[in-house]
Amino acid sequence: MTDQDYNFAYLDEQTKRMIRRAILKGLAIPGYQVPFASREMPMPYGWGTGGVQVSAAVLTPEDTFKVIDQGADDTTNAVSIRSFFQRTAGVTTTTKTSDASVIQTRHRIPEEALTEDQILVYQVPIPEPLRFLEPRESETRKMHSLEEYGLMHVKLYEDISRHGHIATSYAYPVKVEGRYVMDPSPIPKFDNPKLGDMAAIQLFGAGREQRIYALPPYTQVVSLDFEDHPFEASKADHPCGLCGAEESYLDEVIVDDAGGRMFVCSDTDYCDARQAAGYKGKDAA
């Protein structure tokens, strides 16, 4: 049942065409941020308006749509965005990763490998990887055009000299096809290795900052590093307390007033599926 007061998937057709053109240019120039005239959406900037606009431009009525925030389907903002598209596009929704044809995400890539029949849409707060080094758009645009990424390497190297490690643990910058340095959105660096050579199409939408960018399937994506300090994907060194998974990204949950902690999968669908298959962690009932 769709809301008849608004067009299919909320946006008007002219806006969708504009976004669709930006998506195509994004796919043709992987990692390059295409400016687009982001519209005001009925949810606040910073809450997924870029991802929502990209999803609205991509969805068809036959799609099955999944929304995750921090890996979970039932976080409030994920619930809110899912119900928005249920209402405006009438699409079927799911929490099951493998059943979804379009997945909108904030801050995570699902644990389960995605397929060629899927599209992953990221919500991006600050699309410019150089922004915290150079606040001016006019300057960062020049740096990308000249492939002048020295500042980024200097920053990462300063981390190493100060801390012994690169002190970036999420939104870890990557280089795409040897050309553009790209912000993968604030996913934990644990997820970075999944960006490259993925079978699914990856689309990134930054509404407030008016940028769309993309990674076609099977694109080369390299996390920036140094020979003597290679990139390392890291996670909490524990198994999941509920499903016992050793390889999944974990949330740390405080379970009692004494500060007792347990670790559980951040990808709720992955964890539920494992538990349903009989896997048990040490904290499971």
Partner: peptide
Amino acid sequence: TGFLEHIKLPHYVDFQS
């Protein structure tokens, strides 16, 4: 206001890292 207030959304994945 949107971007300012979005920091009250869950960020526990980033915080965990």
